[in-house]
Structures are given as structure tokens and as C-alpha cells.
């Protein structure tokens, strides 16, 4: 099939097998994209990319679902101001993921912050107050579950919480909110 998508801001058009996982396509296009098939797919969480602003495991996305999508790998994400907020938070707190999971965790935090933004803009979940509390994206449980998709245990969840909080403060300051 012919796959048309935007990868790191560049329009790409290529012919690939319709069921080819996106991580394999990205590996072939970019040398910097993580090469890790040791996990046998969906096991390590190192191939996370932003697809239309939402963090996704690229190994779970077949080519035919990526058609028309805007894909941002770490190579593209690191040039954005959103990434600078996170890197500033790393520097400020002195907490930094290891080199193995750095790219993936940074994108994951970027995806979380995008979600926080959406939640502020519109109440994400309507309904039962207790259910709403369980679902709160600011809770530690939520953060633990979201970050748990990457199996690397180099950084404690409380440390990640500090980074997320600080990065979000920077983001809000920058956008004047």
C-alpha cells in the first residue's frame, strides 16, 4: 500500500506492506530511532512516538492505520518547545532517565502534558464524582500506570512526578496561563 504521512514535520510517501508495524518503518527511515525487537513487541515501551499529539506505542500501529497521521519521533520532538520544558525540568530537579529510555520517557511525559492541557481546556470526564476522582490524571496512580508502559525502572515514580509537575509549570508559564 502507499503510505502518506508526516514524520517529524516532513511529508513522507512510501510503499509498504499494510501490516508493517510503524516502528519498523521508522527504523528504516531514521538511524536515530530506537532499534529494539528484543521485547517481541509491546513489551519494553521504548518505541513510543506522538501520533497526532497523543503518545502511542509505534509497534502496535500497522502502516494502514498510520496513513495521513502526523508522527513525531524523539528526533522531531526534541526540537519543540514542549521538549525544552521537560529538559529544563530534568536539569532543575537533577532527575534524568537513563540513556536507554530517555527518548521514550521524554515523549511519554510530553504526551501526558498534552493530555493535561486538554483536560484544562475541557472537562475530560463527566459523571459520577467518585469515578471522576478515580480517573484523575493528576493522581499518583494515574502517573504510575501511564509511566509503567516503559519497563525501565531507572527512575522512581515520585521523581517522575516532580519532573512532570515542574515541566507543566514551565509550559503554563510560557503560554501565559
Amino acid at each position: 500500500m502507499k503510505l502518506n504521512c508526516t514524520i517529524d514535520g516532513t511529508q513522507q510517501s512510501m510503499v509498504v506492506n499494510a501490516n508493517k508495524p510503524l516502528n519498523r518503518i521508522l527504523e528504516e527511515l531514521s538511524d536515530s530511532f530506537v532499534r529494539n525487537h528484543g521485547c517481541l513487541d509491546a513489551g519494553c515501551g521504548n518505541c513510543i512516538v506522538l501520533i497526532n499529539g497523543a503518545a502511542r506505542l509505534s509497534c502496535l500501529i500497522p502502516a494502514f492505520r498510520a496513513n495521513g497521521a502526523a508522527i513525531l519521533t524523539y528526533a522531531g520532538f526534541r526540537k519543540t518547545r514542549f521538549c525544552h520544558d521537560i529538559e529544563r525540568a530534568y536539569a532543575e530537579t537533577g532527575i534524568k532517565p537513563c540513556s536507554q529510555c530517555y527518548a521514550s520517557k521524554t515523549i511519554l511525559i510530553g504526551g501526558l502534558l498534552n493530555r493535561y492541557d486538554q483536560t484544562r481546556a475541557s472537562s475530560m470526564i463527566k459523571g459520577d464524582a467518585e469515578n471522576k476522582a478515580n480517573y484523575s490524571i493528576y493522581s499518583r496512580d494515574y502517573l504510575e500506570r501511564e509511566m509503567g508502559i516503559n519497563i525501565c525502572k531507572c527512575t522512581d515514580i515520585d521523581d517522575i512526578a516532580k519532573v512532570v509537575e515542574l515541566a507543566y509549570t514551565y509550559r503554563r508559564q510560557r503560554s501565559g496561563r
Binding site: N17, P21, L40, D41, A42, I61, P62
Partner: peptide, 12 residues
Amino acid sequence: GGSYIMARPFFY
């Protein structure tokens, strides 16, 4: 959704 099929080892 594909989350199960794509996660099978050696799916591709």
C-alpha cells in the same frame, strides 16, 4: 484496535 494482534510475537 490491533493492540492484541500487533503484540503477538513475530506478527509481522
